[in-house]
Computed example of a mutant assay.
Amino acid sequence: MTRQTVAVIDYGMGNLHSVASALSHVAPDTRVIVTDDPTQVADAHRVIFPGVGAIRDCMAEINRLGFGQLLREQIATGKPVLGICVGMQALMEYSEENNGVACIGILPGQVKFFGEHLQDGVPLKVPHMGWNQVEQNPHPLWADIPQSSRFYFVHSYYVHAQDRQLVAATCDYGVRFDAALARDNLFAVQFHPEKSHTAGLQLLKNFLHWDGKA
């Protein structure tokens, strides 16, 4: 039996080795590679697209390396793909961060600023950081994860999908926002599963067994 390979896309943004370590923990027999090599990504059985930091810097590197097109090609093959944090935001069409940045545009919708919303007359504190409950919509990646489980978030901007049928989970932080999106073989989360203990590790385990179908 061929050993499964998971490629964690490296474009210089984020602690990718914590993701790789979590994957190796839940599936020791899986080969996990952190790579910026398009050939290695194309040859992998599954792809993870993480990211932290400012979207302008992330998109500059994604565009420079041609990873937007690479992601489109990998998704088109039916291969399971998981976006994490800014990786999820980069999949959208546009972000309000850094005075407005065009994103990859794989999923319809925008990334908005928490600080524009008021709670008790006061702007929401940013970043939204720490543990928060996630309300799931049915999807295979939630298998064995109880409804309203807590996941770990660190973000000042949030996703709002234009197509509400894509929403796989929501979360509340003064405003209800999209915590996970799903379309065919693509799943994306705003939280950090690699930092979310039992629930997050279960989601990664589910991803490694997912056939890419809803």
Rank of each mutant, 00 (worst) to 15 (best):
T2G: 15
T5G: 07
Y11H: 11
S24I: 13
V26M: 03
A27N: 09
P28M: 09
D29M: 11
T30Q: 12
T30V: 15
T35Q: 07
T35W: 01
D36L: 12
D36H: 12
Q40N: 08
A42I: 12
A42W: 01
D43G: 10
H45G: 05
I48R: 04
A54P: 03
I55E: 14
I55P: 08
Q69K: 12
L71C: 10
E73Y: 03
E73P: 02
V81F: 08
L82H: 07
G83A: 13
M88L: 15
M92N: 04
E93M: 00
Y94E: 10
Y94Q: 13
Y94G: 06
E97K: 04
E97Y: 00
N98E: 12
C103T: 12
I104V: 14
G105A: 02
G105I: 03
Q110F: 11
V111Y: 04
Q119C: 13
D120E: 11
G121C: 01
V126F: 09
H128A: 08
G130N: 09
G130D: 03
W131S: 11
N132P: 12
E135A: 10
N137Q: 15
P140L: 06
D144I: 00
D144F: 01
P146E: 12
S149R: 02
F153T: 09
H155Y: 02
S156I: 10
Y157E: 08
V159H: 00
V159Y: 03
A161N: 07
R164E: 15
V167P: 06
V175L: 13
V175P: 07
F177V: 05
D178H: 04
L181W: 00
L181R: 00
R183S: 12
L186M: 05
F191N: 00
F191V: 08
H192G: 09
H197L: 11
T198R: 15
A199W: 01
L203P: 05
K205R: 14
F207R: 05
H209S: 15
W210C: 03
A214C: 15
A214W: 14
